[in-house]
Design a protein around this nucleic acid. Sequence first.
DNA 1: TCTGCTAGTGTTACCGCTAACAGCCGCCGG
DNA 2: CCGGCGGCTGTTAGCGGTAACACTAGCAGA
Lengths: 353, 353
Amino acid sequence: MALTKTIPIPRRKPAVSKPTPDPRHTLTLRDVSEASGVSEMTVSRVLRNRGDVSAPTREKVLEAARALGYVPNKIAGALASQRVNLVGVVIPSLSNMVFPEVMTGISSVLDGTGLQPVVGVTNYLPDREETVIYEMLSWRPSGMIVAGLEHTDAARAMLARAGIPIVEIMDIDGEPINHAVGISHRRAGRQMAEAIIAAGYRKIAFLGTQMPNDHRARKRLEGFEEALAKAGLTLVDREFYSGGSALLKGREMTAAILARNPDVDFLYYSNDMIGAGGLLHCLAEGLDVPGKIGLAGFNGVELLDGLPRKLATMDACRLEIGKHAAEVIAGKLIPAEKLELFPTLQPGDTIRG
Amino acid sequence: MALTKTIPIPRRKPAVSKPTPDPRHTLTLRDVSEASGVSEMTVSRVLRNRGDVSAPTREKVLEAARALGYVPNKIAGALASQRVNLVGVVIPSLSNMVFPEVMTGISSVLDGTGLQPVVGVTNYLPDREETVIYEMLSWRPSGMIVAGLEHTDAARAMLARAGIPIVEIMDIDGEPINHAVGISHRRAGRQMAEAIIAAGYRKIAFLGTQMPNDHRARKRLEGFEEALAKAGLTLVDREFYSGGSALLKGREMTAAILARNPDVDFLYYSNDMIGAGGLLHCLAEGLDVPGKIGLAGFNGVELLDGLPRKLATMDACRLEIGKHAAEVIAGKLIPAEKLELFPTLQPGDTIRG
DNA sequence: TCTGCTAGTGTTACCGCTAACAGCCGCCGG
DNA sequence: CCGGCGGCTGTTAGCGGTAACACTAGCAGA
C-alpha cells in the first residue's frame, strides 16, 4: 500500500554512555549479564534453573542478580515463552466465608506447582463477570476456575475458545463448558427437606437472600420445595432480604415470620449466617428448639461452633471443591466432565432426632 | 565471542497457507486485521479507543473482532507500551472479615480508573510475603498496596526500588517505604484502655491471638498496657489462642480466664470475633454485663449488629483505608507520607457508662 | 495556485525475554 | 589419532503488541 519508503526513528536513545549507569533505570537481564560477564541467555537459564550451567557461572550470576536487586520481567518472559503461570479464579464475593475457604483449597494445591491464583470478584453480576473473565483471559492464564455454571453467552464463548482448561465450581446442576467440580444444590435442598419431614415437622418456612443471580441458593430452594411437594407439603411462608448484617437480618426475618405465622414449626435458611441470627432470636425468645420449632441452614461455617446451640446445616465441601478444581488445572486429576461431591447433613441441635 | 556465524532457524513455520485457517490457532491482531482489511495498527487503535479512526473503519474492525471472538493479548500490549493496569494488593488473610472490606474500598475507587487489583495472601508469614511481593513485582504493576509496615529487608528493598507508588496500609506506627494509610493501633489500644479505666473497671484481662507476626494486634496491646501503666494498673491475666473457630475460642478462653480470676471485671479482646464468643459466654452464664464485667473488642465487624447485646469496639476504618490507598495509587490523592485515620470508639452495651 | 493543516492510515523498530539452535571444548572409545 | 558425544555458552529471531513517526488526501486560507 505504501508507495514510498519510510525511515522510522528509534523510539529511544540507543544507549546512554556507560559512565552514568542511571540508578533509576529498571533493571533488565542485560544489566545482570553485564555485571556478571556472561550472556543474557545464561543469566536467564540460571534464574529459571533450566538447562546446564556450571556451578561457578551460576554463582556469579546469582551474586550479581542479588546485588543489583534484579526482579525478572514476567511480561517479557511470558510473551517469549508463551507460558503464563497464572490461574484465573472468578468468584462472586469474598465476604461470605465460603469463597475464602475455596481459595484456601485452591492455594494449597497450586502452591506446589508453580501456578499462582489470581482472584476476580463479580458481586453476583453477570455483566461484571463477563468483564472480569475477559480481562483475565487477556492475560492468557494457564487455566480458569469460575464459580457457577451460569454465564453470559459471550463469557461462555470466550472461555470455550480460550484453549485452556476451564473448571466451573460449586455447582454441577447444569452443562459445564469443560469440567465442573461441585455438589448438587438441588439434591442438597431435597435432602434437607426429607430430613425435616422425617423428623415430623410440617409447617415449614423459608428465609433467604433476595438475589436473582445466586443460582445455587435458588437451586437449593427448588430442590427443597420439590421434596416438600412430594410429601404433599408447601412452604407456609417465605422471607427474603438483601444487604446488611446477615446475622441481624436473620433475627429480623425470623421475628417477622414468627409474628405472621405463630404456628410455623421449621425455619429453613439459605445460609448459616442468617440461620445463626434466627437461632439467637429463638433462644432469646425462649422458644423450645428443636422441640416446638426446628432450624437449619446451609454451609457448615465454623462460626457455628461458637454458638450456644449448634445449627443444623449441610457442609458445601468448599475445601475439597477448591482442591479438586486446582488439581484439574494442574493436570493432577483425570478430567471427568463432572466431579460430584456429596455434602453431609449435620443435624446439630436444632432438628429433633 | 562467537567466532563463526550462526544461522538460526525460525521457531515456527512462517505461515500456514491461508486456505486452512486453523480454527484452533489463538487469535492475534493480524487475524482481525486481515478479516477487516486494515493494518494491525488501526485495529489496535480501534480496540483501545485511542487516536483518530474513521467511523466506518471502526465499525468494520469491531465487527470483525466480535465475529472472531478476539481477546487482546495484554502481555504483548504491556510489554510494548511499558504500561500495566494492575495494582498488587498484598494482605495477610482473607478469612477474617477485615481484608475483604479493605478490598471493597480499593475496588470501589479503582473501578473507575481502568486499574485492576490483584490480590496476594501471605498468611501472616514474612517469607511468604516476600515471595508474593517478588512475584507481583515481576509483573510490573502500576502500584502496590501492602498491609503493614513490617517486611523482610529484601521485600522492603524490592518495593523501594520498583519505581512505582507503594502504599502500606492499616498501620501508621512506623516508617513507610513510600506512603502509609491507616490508623495508629498503639493509640487505639491506649484509647480503649482509657475509656475502660474511666468507666471504673480495674481488674482487666486481655484475650488475643497467638501470632508473632500480627504486628497490629501487638501494637494495640502495647498501647493498651501503656495506658494501664499510666493509671498504675497492670493486666491481671492474659490468654492467647491460635487456629480454630474464633467464636468458639472466644468462649473457651473467656471461661478459662473467669475460672482463674473470678474477680476480673473487664475483658479486652484483640478482635471482635473472639469478643463475640466471650459475650455469648457471659450472657449464657448470666453474668451482669456491663455492670459486674465489661467487654470490648476491636474492628467493628457488622456481625456484631446481630448479637443480643452490642459489643464495645473500635472500628478500624477499613473501607476508608482501602479507598484512600487506591486513591493514592490512582493519583487522585496528594501523596502525604502518612495518612492517619481516626477510629471511633463505639461503646455498645458492654461498657458501663 | 500554492501552502499548511488535519484526519486517517501505514511502517518500522523495538519492549525484555526465551526457544531453538550453533559452536566450542574436553574426554572417551576404537 | 580421530570421530563422537555431552556439557556449557552464545547467537538469532521472534512472541504480539504499541510508540513514534511518515505519509496521503482533502480542504481551507492566502
